[in-house]
């Protein structure tokens, strides 16, 4: 099973890298934007995906129907060279599944809908509108872009881990040791990290820049992940949120997370 899965990831990863399954927010096929192995990638750069406020909606119900599916996680971790450690002490993760009671720690309710209680929602960096990690960073190695993405500059990070103490969602990971030997399938389109810096999900800024949707969104074939511009009333994500009940993690802290969870 593992081999099958690995094989699949490789194929899916390569396919997505080559832009074969890419669609931009307008729903247009952008698969021809980047030719595999092309020398001139400028054409992709000329049609980037842009937004005033990027947001992600996770349909817990749709996602839970594929309870053991890890396609989005695998795709993300593959394209971003996220290492896989045997020792949990060294763990690095950009997207992961967490039991509902941990993911929504503040939603304490023993008699919650059974399927919800047993669900394992996907967790990301929330790309908060008011990100506490950004306030505490002493070098501005992490900051909020105008389109709402909370970015990381791995060249500048000094590894003080103040952002990890400041993040109320446990979304950040630290490179406790050199990650290179623990990356099974190195993707040369994306850098690895060096030991001693913090990393996390960046909503695939590098893919948006060439007109591609985030790798996780692309990898999900049940449409449980919807990504788009929250300021655009016509965007899929906005429509979805308008018509469904959604929750966010720890709304009481006032951080304004941009990852929404649809409860159907």
């Amino acid at each position: 099973m593992t081999i099958d899965r690995r094989k699949f990831i490789k194929t899916a990863g390569l396919a997505s890298l080559a832009g074969l399954v890419g669609k931009n927010v307008l729903g247009q096929d952008v698969s021809d934007v980047i030719e595999p192995g092309s020398f001139d990638r400028l054409s992709g750069l000329q049609s980037p995906l842009q937004a005033r406020r990027w947001a992600m909606a996770v349909d817990i119900g749709k996602c839970e129907k594929q309870h053991d599916c890890t396609k989005c996680i695998d795709a993300c971790h593959l394209v971003h060279n996220v290492p896989k450690f045997d020792n949990p002490k060294d763990e690095i993760k950009w997207i992961w599944k967490e039991p509902f009671e941990h993911a929504f720690h503040e939603q304490e309710n023993e008699f919650q809908k059974t399927d919800l209680i047993h669900s394992t929602p996907l967790l990301f960096c929330n790309h908060c509108d008011i990100p506490p990690c950004v306030s505490v960073c002493p070098t501005r190695a992490t900051w909020k872009r105008e389109d709402g993405i909370v970015m990381m500059d791995w060249h500048r990070c000094i590894g003080c881990r103040y952002c990890m103490a400041g993040c109320p969602y446990g979304s950040r990971s630290f490179n406790w040791r050199d990650p290179r030997p623990f990356i099974e399938d190195q993707q040369k389109d994306f850098p690895t990290r060096m030991r001693g810096v913090v990393e996390k999900c960046t909503f695939c800024d590098e893919r948006l820049a060439v007109g591609l949707l985030p790798a996780c969104v692309e990898a999900c074939d049940v449409g449980a992940l919807v990504f788009g511009d929250l300021e655009d009333p016509e965007s899929n994500v906005r429509k979805l949120l308008n018509n469904n009940f959604s929750i966010r993690r720890k709304p009481g802290l006032g951080t304004q997370p941009e990852v929404y969870y649809i409860i159907s």
């Binding site: 400028l42 750069l45 000329q46 900051w143 872009r145 970015m151 500059d153 060249h155 800024d205 820049a209």
Partner: peptide
């Protein structure tokens, strides 16, 4: 280039 790409999102 590094600062333009990473920090400003300018890639060309």
């Amino acid at each position: 280039w590094r600062d333009d790409v990473v920090r400003k999102g300018v890639r060309v």
